[in-house]
Design a protein around this nucleic acid. Structure first.
Lengths: 121, 121
DNA sequence: CAGTAGTATTCGCATATTCGAATCTTCGTG
DNA sequence: CACGAAGATTCGAATATGCGAATACTACTG
């Protein structure tokens, strides 16, 4: 479990979700589908910018839309993801400080690298 | 709930977590506390870079450390947060596509903005 | 005290992200 | 068909992020 590449996808997802407008967008959409102009109106963000953020969320398969005449009604494509996301960012996670002794014991006998093998390189 | 500023903190948190090295770091630390050199060795990332990422996580109060002589043993300061985070990025969230009719109905009667009330502003 | 291992910090560059302005497309209506 | 409204896309500039190299700092050891 030391390969960093396996975390790239998860990191991309988190980074993409980590934008205030996109979070507000997701919360708004999680209540009901909305068209771009409604969102623009609701969030006080310019239309082009709303479209840009929606495009990002759409590429990530987090939202999708249906066309209704001239309008595009966006909705949450993965409600479970958004729900869990909102819980994560909404919850308070208290700090659980450990004592030096606890940490030292949990760290095991691994002192330094004095006995390190040259690895695979 | 249309104020974007209230999402800034959450967005900052997600963005900060959205980095492959930091995720790998958190997973490694969630198994046991480790010192910087151990991590550097485990993840094949340069020492300065490990320190940089750890500094970010420390400022966000996600990790902390205790000094053990010359070493700094880092540990997860908010295990609940990291646990839920790992669950979120580890789980599969299936796409729940809606039909146009479903979306239109859920969107309510809000067609466009033609009949928009001036809101509370 | 000199040397060294462990770690942090600073600096600079390369790359990525964000956003506004402008433009383009499409659909509906008269 | 002309026009306007809804929305997407492109482009460029400002800002942020990531990382390596170099360096500084500190606590042990001899």
């Amino acid at each position: 479990m030391s390969d960093i590449r396996q975390w790239r996808e998860a990191a991309d997802l988190l980074r993409l979700l980590g934008h205030p407008v996109r979070l507000a967008l997701l919360e708004g959409l999680s209540k009901a589908p909305k068209c771009v102009t409604d969102i623009q109106d609701l969030l006080a963000v310019r239309q082009a910018n709303v479209s840009q953020h929606l495009a990002v969320l759409r590429q990530a398969k987090i939202v999708d839309y249906h066309e209704d005449g001239n309008l595009r009604c966006y909705y949450i494509l993965r409600p479970g993801l958004v729900r869990d996301l909102m819980r994560l960012v909404g919850r308070e996670y208290p700090c659980k400080a450990r004592t030096p002794a606890q940490v030292r014991r949990a760290a095991g006998a691994r002192r330094s690298r004095s006995s390190a093998q040259p690895a695979t390189a």
